[in-house]
Simulated assay, not measured.
Amino acid sequence: MTRIDRYIFRQLAGGLLAVTAGLAALVWLTQSLRFIELVLDRGLSLTVFIELTSLMLPGFIAVILPITTFVVVLFVYVRMNSDRELVVMRAAGLSPLRLARPAISLALISVAVGYMLNMWLVPLSHGAFRMWQFEIRNQMAAILLQEGVFSSIGNELTVYARSRERDGTLRGILVHDQREPGAPVTIIAEQGRITTTPLGPRVLLINGVREQMEAGRNGQPPRLNTLSFAENSVDLARATRQEEVRARDSRERSIPELLDPDPAEGLRPRDVARFYGEAHQRMSAPLTALSYALVALAVALTGQFRRHGGGLRLAAGIGITVGLLALGLTIGNLATRENAFVWLIWAHALVPGIVALWWMIGAPGLPRPRPRPASA
């Protein structure tokens, strides 16, 4: 790598690290606001909060890395063009392809990082994130209860508390339990308290009424059974314990699992098609970093030099890439519904870069206007 290559590469690498870190931090901050209430009001420790939200970062970086690569390449080269640096380099005999070499090297590094994230780190971190969610719902279900709100714990248990005191005592409790098929239970109690046991959290209810609707037998109508109690205990963990055998999300699965899921899971054909499309999206997505970088180079390094033309180049490059991003979302949704269009995912990842490279080397094969002969 020559001195000029190192000079351009340092600017590109420093900009890519700064922009990617800043944008990832911004996205992390906006997404982590969903969990901040668990720290402020529900007693979730700050350490658990940081560990939980940090597991989302690999997925954020995998998504934004191609975009930040494009942004940095476009802005650095347009700035160098406006500062006349590229003019001097071109005057020294450097071709557009030669000037593009540092950006292509950086884009290849982004592609390698993207593959590491999509193939290994994103499934690993997303699986750990889902397990943390399960632990919060199951072992820490107490922090999910909010006063004056009907809180769903699992799919079949709803708990309401009119107020919650500082010592954790709940006042005015209503529990609707549908875990027993055909025999829903409604419990109303004056007060209660969440207790933690080795098997998960339980709520101890004091001074209440338990009402259960039982199906009628031998043609008899359903019957309502009512029982008054001084103390009663309800298992909150059992509402979510069955989720230990839940079907894993597509982002938790490796590429072989997405391409060839286990038939024993009993997946629907729609889910199998979605997994297949997701696998090809994950395999092709890192290549868009190289394609977007080539698009930025084609915009910044071609055409005539204009003293005040930087804004136009930026607008053209951003417009092209925004269109490519919108097209990619459309193709991704189409391919996950109908796998016959999976080839469009790869075309979207590769064709823009090939066209940009062809344009950058002079668009060979494109008809050129002939110069008019000079008039006598």
Rank of each mutant, 00 (worst) to 15 (best):
M140A: 13
A62Y: 01
L23E: 00
G266W: 06
A247I: 15
E51L: 15
P263D: 12
T197M: 08
I206P: 03
L65F: 06
L294H: 01
P269H: 07
A24D: 05
V48D: 13
A161K: 01
G328T: 01
I8C: 02
V272I: 04
T158E: 08
L106A: 10
G266N: 15
A112Y: 07
F275L: 14
L290C: 00
M116W: 11
G172E: 06
G208T: 12
L57Q: 05
R130Q: 03
V48L: 15
V355R: 02
R270N: 12
V63H: 04
S152F: 11
A161N: 05
M213K: 11
N218F: 09
G310K: 08
M116A: 14
S82D: 03
G266A: 09
G154T: 14
M1G: 05
A92Y: 04
G127K: 14
L366Y: 06
L144M: 12
R253A: 11
A128Q: 15
L294A: 10
L94Q: 10
I61P: 03
A103H: 01
G168C: 14
W132R: 13
T195L: 15
A112W: 07
L94I: 09
A300K: 11
A298P: 09
M360V: 06
A92P: 08
R79I: 00
R223N: 08
L16H: 05
I153P: 13
V122R: 03
A141V: 08
R179S: 02
P181M: 00
I331D: 01
Y115R: 13
E252A: 09
P222D: 03
G154Y: 11
F129A: 08
A340G: 13
F341Y: 11
Q146L: 15
W358Y: 05
V234I: 09
M56F: 15
Q281I: 08
L344C: 06
R268D: 15
Q191H: 15
